[in-house]
Design a protein around this nucleic acid. Structure first.
Lengths: 197, 197
DNA sequence: GCGTCCATGTAAATGGTTACATGATTAT
DNA sequence: ATAATCATGTAACCATTTACATGGACGC
């Protein structure tokens, strides 16, 4: 899903400037399932404007730089609808923190603990922000569903990490059990493995 | 986190060919938190070989093409350890399916249901594969932790979707409540908003 | 003064995906 | 026959991230 569609999605919730769109990806309802930086938002808005999917209104402000407020057009809504009806690509998840915790035994105990607590803390903050939220009271079914889904995931992570904190962090000895020389386990490449270290 | 570090991580679990490494990212313990295709794995392995982080052993096979089995070296382990001690970047999540469900009201009811059930089904399959798993019995604390974390997340998604299926799918009328013309809600840009559709 | 928030944009560099190129074996 | 699995690699393409460029207002 390209940045243009993502921006159309944000603008579907209301007109906004590029700067405000980025905030939506950081704090708004999209934060948990997508991301975008200035470098992709501004070119996307230019392309959308050229395609007639959005309009742009220069809005002067007092004490602040001028804004370019973008609003979705009917053509834009139609383009979003079309994009929404394509078969969805599979989820993409990339977590360096989890990758690190996977190799907990290779980590310096201090770093291991720091990564763990930081990750847990971030998730707690997400939940706090999502539940404290007073704004955006009139949400649709889909928006409520996604909000609740995000909350459910974050809470599951918090519960799990709280429960297994000791199992991961208590052993300061870092007992690294040497694994066998094969990655799969069930793949029938038994005699193909070759030691070469 | 670049592909080289990811490959080193896989090779830490045992020697493997590029083809087998990709399978690890699809079905193995990394599948839920990272991904990589051939186009990034093969160049990464070449670079690792040149850097001395891995060794390569050409392994002829009967009835199958030759394999290049890569094994991590001590220098590779050290490089992985270094990469593991950098501060982790924030998680990246991209879900087209969730983006679509966010706009459930814009979706054709059939498509809405299809996306929902496909997403739920994928998660059920993940759990089935992860729990049925007979291989990889000797896992470290970190590996068990991450495996359990993945399971906890998938189960949370399944439970949530089962619970709120009707709330999202039952209404065939698609009552789209018009949201106000502002994306934030709590950002103090009240009078800055400009209608222009 | 210094850092942060507001606000927009471009250009270079990085890096990943997709498509191409090849080819044997096995199962349906 | 046809598709899938096994197996490696390159090159073109696409997209994002990062750095650069600019500048006023506000709080510490």
């Amino acid at each position: 899903m390209d940045s243009r569609t993502l921006c159309l999605g944000v603008l579907m919730l209301g007109s906004a400037s590029g700067y405000e769109i980025k905030k939506q990806f950081e704090e708004g309802p999209f934060a948990h399932f997508h991301a975008a930086g200035f470098g992709s938002i501004y070119p996307a808005l230019s392309a959308l404007l050229k395609a007639g999917h959005v309009t742009c209104t220069l809005t002067p402000q007092e004490g602040r730089p001028d804004k370019k407020v973008y609003a979705i057009t009917e053509a834009g809504r139609e383009a979003l609808r079309r994009a929404l009806h394509k078969p969805p690509a599979g989820d993409i998840v990339r977590s360096e923190a989890v990758f690190m915790l996977f190799f907990a035994e290779l980590l310096d105990p201090d770093h291991r603990r720091a990564v763990f607590e930081a990750y847990l803390g971030e998730h707690r903050e997400h939940v706090a922000r999502m539940t404290a939220e007073t704004g955006c009271p009139c949400r649709s079914d889909g928006q409520r569903f996604v909000h609740g889904l995000g909350l459910a995931i974050y809470r599951a992570v918090i519960d799990y990490m709280d429960q297994y904190r000791d199992a991961l962090l208590m052993r300061e000895d870092a007992g690294e059990s040497a694994p066998p020389d094969r990655p799969g386990g069930e793949t029938a490449t038994a005699e193909a493995a070759v030691q070469n270290g």
